[in-house]
Computed example of a mutant assay.
Amino acid sequence: MSSFRTIEISSDVPDGLKFLTVKSAHLKGRGDITLFEPQGDFSEPLPLVILLHGVYGSHWAWAFSGNAHKTAANMINSGEIEPMVLVMPSDGLWGDGSSYTSHNERDFEKWIVEDVVKAACEASPLVNEQSPKFISGLSMGGYGALRLGLRHPQIFTAISAHSAITCFSEMALFIEEDLNSLHKSWDESEELDIISEFSKEGKIHPHLRFDCGLSDQLIEGNRLFHKQLNELKVAHTYEEFGGAHEWDYWQNHLPGTLKFFNQFCKIKGK
């Protein structure tokens, strides 16, 4: 029995892709997802990687602007990484970007951490609830990956972010909507940055890496986040590379994310 009132799943299309449309109670409407399945016969459930897009985009962005599915397929076929399923959801399509938070009577956070995972398990026989789960994203999607991964360590084994917004106020660099419309309790004087998630005593954190381009307008925020993590003695990997806030950069550095996740692909309980 489906977890959704309605779920539409496309026939297989080239390059191992499927397209899903589900009616989500958290979105109060329908949401779209692009899914990539590697070819082959597998006796165990595969790892599930969620890729979150940035502002202005949608579920197709990582596949058709970033070639994520082709990158994954090439790396799997060459033996660089174990087979894994990619799930690339829409952010919920609110304004220029939902920020993957809860606002305007919609829960864009639960859409990702609950609905997208359930939809992937229903649409693909290659994954199930026992699959190791990873989350990554770019720009606003990097913010979503960091925030959701840290808030749900029971779900996600590891997090990787590219060119991430690391402070909620940086959303203003990209969207025309008032920040208060995305986060009712947001206030510039309050510490609502992602770093606050690390300050909770005794909290277990997923494995973490992030990177940013040297010509990216978000580089200083990423450097500050790296500095704050070091001060808190939080284990993580931070890297800087040549490049700007653009698809060439994200496409070139997605392999680093997939290799990072590949280290932690063991099925729970195995």
Rank of each mutant, 00 (worst) to 15 (best):
E191N: 15
H162G: 11
A158T: 15
G213V: 11
G213I: 12
L218D: 03
E220Q: 15
N262C: 06
P45D: 12
L17F: 00
S160K: 04
F210Y: 05
I219Q: 12
K118F: 02
T101L: 11
I159T: 08
F42K: 00
L27T: 03
N180F: 13
S189C: 10
G144Y: 13
V22Y: 11
N74H: 06
H236F: 10
P132Y: 07
A119W: 05
T166L: 08
V117L: 14
S196E: 10
D211R: 11
L179E: 13
D107H: 06
L182V: 00
F64T: 00
F261D: 02
E188D: 14
R223I: 06
E122F: 05
N67A: 12
S102V: 08
G142F: 15
K268E: 15
E44T: 12
T157P: 00
N74T: 06
P45G: 09
S189W: 12
A172F: 01
E231D: 13
E80R: 13
V127N: 02
G256Y: 15
S78A: 11
F108E: 03
S90F: 10
S11D: 06
H103P: 03
L27F: 03
G31C: 09
H205K: 14
S169R: 15
E190V: 13
E240N: 12
L20R: 07
I195N: 12
T34Y: 03
F174Y: 15
S181K: 15
I81K: 03
G92D: 09
D15C: 02
G79W: 03
F156G: 08
G137F: 05
K28M: 08
N222C: 15
P206I: 08
G95L: 04
S136E: 11
L146D: 13
D248C: 01
P206D: 08
P89C: 06
E190Y: 14
H226V: 01
L150E: 01
L138A: 10
P153E: 06
L20N: 04
H205M: 11
V49C: 01
M140D: 08
E122C: 07
W94L: 06
N74Q: 09
M171G: 02
L27K: 04
D12N: 04
M1C: 11
H183G: 09
P47S: 07
P47K: 03
L93D: 02
P38L: 01
S10L: 04
V127F: 02
H59K: 10
E231T: 09
